[in-house]
């Protein structure tokens, strides 16, 4: 099943419409097209990281400087970034937009993604991270703007889970 170019483009356009100018990312097969589109867009600064923890630092630096930013990571990368989320974003009250490829859920055929799929939401809840699941292109911009509004109001990192139905062609 190929990744949806149409919805990847919509996601890229949504980030632009929401004023996001700095994106840090670590590629994951579902995220490859949107990362490519962002990389080709001179209006967004893309930083390719080696490990997802770096994204938390980069987003914190961008926020402190007054820039809107986002990180694009797979859910196993979110697991890798738990310490900086707690000891930087929570400790220092830094809002963040975390776009997380929600691997290992219904539809995913790869066994190695399934453990991460089962713990992602319980972990977000344990960390008191507000989140929403983006499972269709309907009103995507509205939902991302609403997430941004809450992140900025609460000074918290928030998560947008990119679901199989959004990211993959039917």
């Amino acid at each position: 099943m190929p990744v949806s170019e149409t919805n990847s483009r919509l996601l890229h356009q949504t980030l632009k419409a929401c004023g996001i100018q700095v994106v840090s990312a670590l590629p994951e097969s579902w995220l490859v097209p949107v990362i490519r589109m962002i990389g080709d867009d001179p209006g967004i600064r893309l930083i390719r990281v080696a490990k997802e923890e770096e994204c938390v630092g980069i987003s914190a630096g961008a926020h402190i400087a007054g820039m809107k930013s986002a990180m694009l990571v797979p859910n196993h990368g979110f697991l890798a970034a738990v310490n900086p989320i707690v000891s930087l974003a929570h400790l220092y009250k830094v809002p963040m937009m975390m776009f997380i490829a929600y691997r290992g859920t219904f539809g995913d055929t790869y066994p190695w993604h399934t453990p991460g799929g089962t713990v992602t939401e319980p972990l977000l809840q344990t960390l008191r991270i507000p989140y929403t699941i983006l499972d269709s292109p309907e009103s995507l911009e509205r939902r991302v703007r609403d997430a941004q509004a809450l992140a900025d109001a609460s000074l918290l990192p928030v998560a947008l889970l990119l679901k199989y139905e959004l990211m993959m062609e039917a």
């Binding site: 770096e54 994204c55 400087a65």
Partner: peptide
């Protein structure tokens, strides 16, 4: 700014600041 935890990330914060400023 003194990053009082999150060991390792001072340079990542620096990078986020550098591209923004």
């Amino acid at each position: 700014f003194y990053l009082q935890h999150a060991m390792g990330l001072a340079s990542s914060i620096g990078l986020g600041l550098a591209v923004s400023l």
